[in-house]
Amino acid sequence: MTGREQFETDLSDIKEDIMALSNASVDALRKAIDALYNQDLNLANSVIDEDKRVDKQEHAINDQTILLIARQQPVATDLRRLVISLQITTDIERMADNAKNIAKSTCHLGQDHRLTIHPRIKEMRDMAINMNETAMRAFQYEDVSIAGKLSAMDDKVDRLYERIVSDLLSETATNPEKIQYVMQMAFSARYIERFSDHITNIGESILYLVKGESYKLN
Rank of each mutant, 00 (worst) to 15 (best):
P74N: 05
H118M: 03
N132F: 01
D63T: 10
F139K: 09
S85L: 04
H118T: 08
L79K: 09
M185T: 03
Q184V: 00
K156Q: 13
A103M: 02
R137V: 01
D155P: 07
N62K: 05
A60S: 13
T172M: 15
H108Q: 04
V144N: 13
I179W: 09
K100R: 14
L169Y: 13
D154N: 14
N62I: 11
P176A: 03
I129L: 01
Q180K: 08
I92D: 05
L82Y: 09
I92E: 06
V83P: 01
A128I: 10
A173Y: 07
V75D: 06
E133F: 02
E123I: 10
P119N: 11
L67W: 04
A138R: 11
L68Q: 15
E162I: 00
A173S: 14
V83F: 13
R125K: 09
V157W: 04
D155H: 07
R163I: 04
A135I: 11
R71G: 07
L150E: 06
T134H: 05
G110S: 02
L168K: 08
T174S: 10
L168D: 14
R125D: 04
N175P: 04
E133G: 10
N98C: 00
I179P: 14
E142W: 07
D126T: 08
A186P: 02
K122T: 12
Y141D: 15
I179T: 14
A138P: 01
A70E: 08
R137G: 00
A60I: 04
S151C: 08
Y161P: 02
V157G: 07
V83N: 15
T116E: 15
Q87Y: 13
A147T: 05
R81Q: 13
M124R: 04
A186T: 15
Y181S: 10
N98W: 02
R125Y: 01
A96Q: 10
I69E: 09
N175A: 12
I92S: 00
A103D: 00
L115F: 10
R159G: 09
I102V: 10
L115P: 00
R125G: 11
T116I: 12
M153A: 06
N62T: 02
N130F: 00
R137D: 11
N132A: 07
I117D: 03
I129R: 05
T65D: 01
D97T: 03
N130S: 14
K100V: 03
N101F: 01
P176V: 03
T77Y: 03
R94W: 09
R81T: 15
V165K: 12
I92N: 08
G148N: 15
R80G: 02
R81W: 06
D126V: 10
F139E: 13
V157S: 12
A60M: 08
K104L: 08
E133R: 10
S170C: 01
D143S: 13
R137T: 12
T134S: 06
V157P: 11
E177K: 15
A70F: 01
P74M: 01
P74L: 10
N62C: 06
D91H: 14
A128V: 07
C107F: 06
I121H: 12
V144C: 15
R120S: 14
C107M: 04
I164Q: 11
S145N: 10
A147R: 00
F139A: 11
R81N: 14
Q184T: 08
T77S: 14
Q180M: 01
D143L: 12
S105W: 02
M183H: 11
E177L: 05
V83E: 07
